[in-house]
Nucleic acid binder design. Structure first.
Lengths: 124, 124
DNA sequence: AGGGGAGATTGACAACTGTCGATATATTCA
DNA sequence: TGAATATATCGACAGTTGTCAATCTCCCCT
């Protein structure tokens, strides 16, 4: 189990380096294999409609905390499936789990989505 | 073939609405199934290390145009595989293809990545 | 202590995805 | 016209993923 933390990964849209055209060199500034794998792992967590809905439901919760029962119903998914998706989101570093008594409350990791978004936008 | 254009999809991090807790209503402001599917389709295009590297190579190209041959070598992938990834990126609305003669040049769709990033950050 | 309920885990299965080799298409050049 | 070359498409295959039913674990309440 590798809890993917928010490491600093180069942005997809990096700063323009003057690399020579049509040269087999790995295009200075481009993502290396390892970095790309780490980034892709986080985007994979977002690459499912139900997980996006879960995130948006949690983001929309005024209490900033949502219990699993709140998520299962409107999604029309089984409880184990929701649990599975939540686990993926937690392991991607996007959610935190807080179990209080019988209930488990999930909330967004502050800045996680934003830092992911930042890898897509060119640095100003 | 459904060329996913940049439609205006509600952000995952929406504006906070005061929804009642523990109510089965679809949490006002949360992503609906269709919207979530459209968004997920675009994130799926980013959910592969090699596609991220392709994007970053194209983004790093000073000429803002890259031909397939430039991509195939450093990625250590077969040509058909690269072609396949490029197709996915084009269909996701992230790249455009410009075939001039025997060569095909790919470039970023302006604003596409940014608009995707915007769905992850709360509106200010 | 014992029952009930919330949520996690396991195992299975169908559907999807990334990759390759082979082949097709199309454009340039001789 | 015919050869050479760049890219796209096809078919196949292994690995991954989303889902469910069944089961397990743990906490609360009586």
């Amino acid at each position: 189990m590798s809890t993917t933390l928010v490491t600093d990964i180069p942005a997809v849209l990096g700063t323009q380096a003057d690399a020579p055209c049509c040269v087999s060199a790995p295009a200075a500034g481009a993502l290396e294999a390892e970095e790309a794998a780490a980034l892709a792992a986080r985007f994979k967590a977002l690459a499912d409609p139900n997980r996006l809905r879960i995130l948006s439901m949690i983001a929309a919760d005024p209490a900033a905390e949502t219990c699993v029962c709140d998520i299962t119903e409107p999604l029309d998914l089984g409880q184990p499936t929701v649990s599975h998706h939540l686990k993926i989101l937690v392991e991607a570093g996007l959610l935190t789990r807080d179990k209080r008594g019988v209930w488990a409350y999930y909330s967004l990791v502050p800045g996680a989505l934003e830092s992911l978004a930042a890898t897509l936008t060119p640095k100003v």
